[in-house]
Computed example of a mutant assay.
Amino acid sequence: MAESSCSKADIRQVHQLRQKIRHAQEPDNPGLIYQWIQADNALAGYQTEQRRQHCIHQFQLLMDVVSDDYLPVHWRNTCLDSVSIPLCTLKCLADDTQSVTRVRQLFSELRTLSHYFQHSLSCYDQHYS
């Protein structure tokens, strides 16, 4: 992390936003996700590898939320809709075989999980309709 160019307040803000997203503390505030991604990207700096790592962590956090059955369904769906943001950034940063392969793996993980998530939502809707 490029901590030398960022203040502790910036780092703390990103951490707080991350916690709010992970624990659905503001499930009716989808703008929170974009605010967090922008602030986290600012922490990443300009080095490609650091930016990649931040995008992977963003992807993983959003996928953790999507997979968490204890969180509100609409929040999980919002995170699923937003997971393409770090993935697309990561795709733009892919400049070698290893990074291209990693992006493909993450897209595959997203396809698998989104299929499961859509199926579980349809079961949820059928059960509570």
Rank of each mutant, 00 (worst) to 15 (best):
E3S: 05
E3Q: 15
E3P: 03
E3K: 13
S4D: 06
S5Q: 06
S5D: 14
S5G: 06
C6E: 04
C6H: 08
C6F: 04
S7V: 04
K8D: 13
A9S: 09
I11Y: 04
V14A: 01
L17S: 02
L17P: 02
L17A: 02
L17I: 00
R18D: 01
R18Y: 05
K20S: 08
R22C: 03
H23A: 12
H23Q: 13
H23W: 07
H23T: 15
E26R: 05
E26Q: 07
P27H: 15
D28I: 14
N29L: 03
N29A: 06
P30S: 05
P30R: 14
P30A: 07
G31Q: 11
L32A: 01
Y34D: 07
Y34V: 08
W36M: 05
I37C: 06
I37K: 06
I37Y: 03
I37P: 00
I37Q: 04
A39K: 09
A42T: 09
A42D: 10
A44M: 05
A44F: 10
G45M: 13
G45C: 12
Y46H: 13
Y46A: 11
R51H: 06
R51P: 02
R52T: 00
Q53D: 13
H54Q: 15
C55V: 05
I56H: 06
I56C: 05
I56Y: 04
I56E: 03
I56P: 00
H57W: 09
F59Q: 07
F59R: 00
F59E: 02
F59G: 03
F59A: 04
Q60E: 09
L61Q: 06
L61Y: 08
M63A: 09
D64I: 12
V65D: 13
V65F: 14
V66R: 12
V66L: 15
Y70S: 12
L71I: 13
V73R: 14
V73P: 05
H74F: 14
W75R: 12
W75H: 15
R76C: 09
R76V: 11
N77F: 08
N77W: 14
C79S: 14
L80P: 04
D81L: 13
S82P: 14
S82W: 08
V83W: 02
S84G: 11
S84H: 11
L87W: 00
L87P: 01
L87H: 01
C88P: 00
C88E: 11
T89F: 03
T89A: 05
T89D: 04
T89M: 07
K91D: 05
L93D: 02
L93N: 02
A94D: 08
A94H: 09
D95A: 03
D96N: 15
T97M: 03
Q98P: 01
V100F: 08
V103E: 01
V103W: 01
Q105T: 10
Q105D: 03
F107G: 00
S108C: 09
L110D: 02
L110S: 03
R111G: 02
R111M: 12
L113M: 10
Y116H: 14
F117W: 12
Q118Y: 06
H119R: 12
S120E: 15
L121G: 03
S122P: 01
C123S: 05
C123V: 11
C123G: 02
Y124F: 12
Q126G: 03
Q126A: 10
Q126N: 13
H127F: 10
S129G: 11
S129E: 14
S129K: 13
